[in-house]
Structure formats: structure tokens, C-alpha cells
């Protein structure tokens, strides 16, 4: 299933932070991981990811560092900071609240009562 762009773009920060929750990754790994976890629904462009990662770094939510990958090549890994972890919790809560509200509306539930 291919999702409408606007549905994904608003939650890119959340997805990016979530990917880093379990471990440090470099850009290419993040795109592949996102594709795998979303079962090919989210195909993030590298040109979108890197500016986003850099802006998250500016805000102190992630921290970049150089490290030699398994392939033997040097790659720039991103690490979720404590501040980033807190931001992730907040974004997850906000997203869950939003999804529940949307679900109720789409099912024609509480709001019509």
C-alpha cells in the first residue's frame, strides 16, 4: 500500500527517532529499516532523511559520530540522546492521542453522540 505523502511527512521526525530507539544507525540503514518495518509502505528518500537528521541533531535530539561499519567502511552513525528519547515519548503520546481521535471520528462514534 502506498500512502499519501502528506500523511507520512508530518510524522517523519517521530519515525526517525523511533528507528534510533533500539540502537545507533547510519542513514542508509535507517531507510532500509523503515522500509522493512513498514512492509514497504514508507519509502523515505535520502534527500529528505539527511536534512531531517541534521535538523534533529541541531535540536540536540540525536548525536552523530563516525564509526567503521561491518563493511569496513566509515559511516556517520546517529545516536538518540536523552533529550531525543524524551521527545520521542512526547511525540508517541501525541500521535497515539491523534490516532485514537481519528479512529473514533472515522468509525462515527463518540463525536456524534
Amino acid at each position: 500500500m502506498v500512502l499519501e505523502k502528506s500523511l507520512v511527512s508530518g510524522s517523519m521526525s517521530l519515525l526517525t527517532l523511533k528507528l534510533l530507539e533500539d540502537g545507533d544507525l547510519y542513514g542508509y540503514q535507517m531507510i532500509e529499516e523503515l522500509r522493512r518495518r513498514s512492509e514497504d509502505a514508507f519509502r523515505l528518500r535520502a534527500g529528505t532523511l539527511y536534512p531531517l537528521l541534521h535538523s534533529l541533531e541541531e535540536k540536540g535530539l540525536v548525536q552523530a559520530y563516525e564509526q567503521t561499519a561491518e563493511s569496513g567502511k566509515s559511516r556517520r552513525y546517529y545516536h538518540l540522546t536523552r533529550q531525543g528519547r524524551n521527545a520521542l515519548r512526547e511525540k508517541e503520546d501525541a500521535w497515539n492521542a491523534y490516532a485514537q481521535a481519528m479512529g473514533r471520528v472515522l468509525k462515527g462514534g463518540a463525536c456524534l453522540a
Binding site: Q29, Q63, A64, Q67, A69, S74, R76, H79
Partner: peptide, 19 residues
């Protein structure tokens, strides 16, 4: 500005684990 390669064993472990 970026940090130079980190030597943190914990961080290395996490990367290997992820891969």
C-alpha cells in the same frame, strides 16, 4: 562539528547488535 570515532564499547556493542 562532529566527534571523532567513538571508542565506547557499549556503543560498539549496540551497533553490532543492531546489524
Amino acid at each position: 562539528a562532529r566527534e571523532e570515532p567513538s571508542a565506547s564499547p557499549w556503543r560498539r556493542f549496540r551497533i553490532r547488535f543492531e546489524l
